[in-house]
Design a protein around this nucleic acid. Structure first.
Ligand SMILES: [Mn+2]
Ligand SMILES: [Mn+2]
Ligand SMILES: [Zn+2]
Ligand SMILES: [Zn+2]
Lengths: 142, 142
DNA sequence: TGTTTGTTGAAAACAATTTTCAACTATCAA
DNA sequence: TTGATAGTTGAAAATTGTTTTCAACAAACA
């Protein structure tokens, strides 16, 4: 888990200014272990006593995603959620009922990429792997 | 490749009426081997001499996707493209520059699903695996 | 403490998709 | 063949997530 201080330094290192709004967003993200929509992040940052707008949340999430400091997940309806990125390469299981999201690792697709690259001629640059399934709570098991 | 007749039967079998508009859409899809947006499908169906609206394309693609007769791919910006579903389980490589899409198979994630299911408690129902990379044409190799 | 230049946010614009609802038509029973 | 029935259509309006605009603002740095 990145500390807020480290994240701030990363922003500065890449030429971004450290504004009140960005502090607010980092603080809101740091306090939540769930994946949040931009609107969620706005709400939480405001609840923390900061004043900022939704536009700024979008812009900041773009910046943080570009730097790899947050992970963005893609939902069925096309909208996004974000959480601070943890170490290493991870993927996600998303509950279609409640959007609860859990990370997993240990997925090595390197061989697949090479194979696809060879058979299609496409120069593989990126990938999405997301699993969907009902979480324990929504199964009534939790 | 499903023939248009088979697709029509599938629709009827599931209680859908076989309208001119749906015929138009099936015909447009059958003629293209690319993944098309809803607007693309509308254009092609019209070019075939039919008259229909975009709303109907959306509704029809929903129905066809529910029946598994078309595959829907998810693009970075949240919009979708469709093509008639081919046999078996396939995934896609999408060119971020021109959206050209190629299928590939031979990716077995069953083991991964089981592992994730066990470690997270989520009941895996579905997954997205999409690779992104520049196509031969966009690489200037083509 | 000024100057520079990145940043902000309200409001408007966008784009894909969905909803509304009255007119229409495929289907089927008679 | 012909109604009756219930699914289907589409223009227009509404929604929704997100981006753009642009003038006011505020970090950062000398
Ligand atoms: Mn991976
Ligand atoms: Mn999608
Ligand atoms: Zn759930
Ligand atoms: Zn391309």
């Amino acid at each position: 888990m990145h500390s807020q201080k480290k994240l701030s330094k990363q922003l500065r290192r890449h030429g971004y200014r450290l504004t009140q709004q960005r502090r607010a967003i980092l603080q809101a993200l740091a306090q939540s272990h769930e994946y949040l929509t931009s609107a969620d992040i706005l709400d939480r940052a405001k609840a923390l006593g900061f004043d900022l707008g939704l536009t700024t949340v979008y812009r900041t999430m773009d910046a943080l995603a570009d730097l790899g400091l947050v992970k963005r997940i893609h939902l069925e309806d096309g909208c996004h959620r974000y959480a601070l990125a943890s170490q290493g390469h991870r993927h996600y299981v998303v509950c279609p009922d409640c959007s609860r999201t859990v990370e997993f690792e240990g997925c090595d697709l390197g061989f697949l990429f090479q194979q696809v690259s060879q058979s299609t001629g496409f120069a593989i640059q990126d990938h999405w792997l997301e699993l969907f399934g009902r979480c324990p709570q929504c199964q009534g098991v939790g």
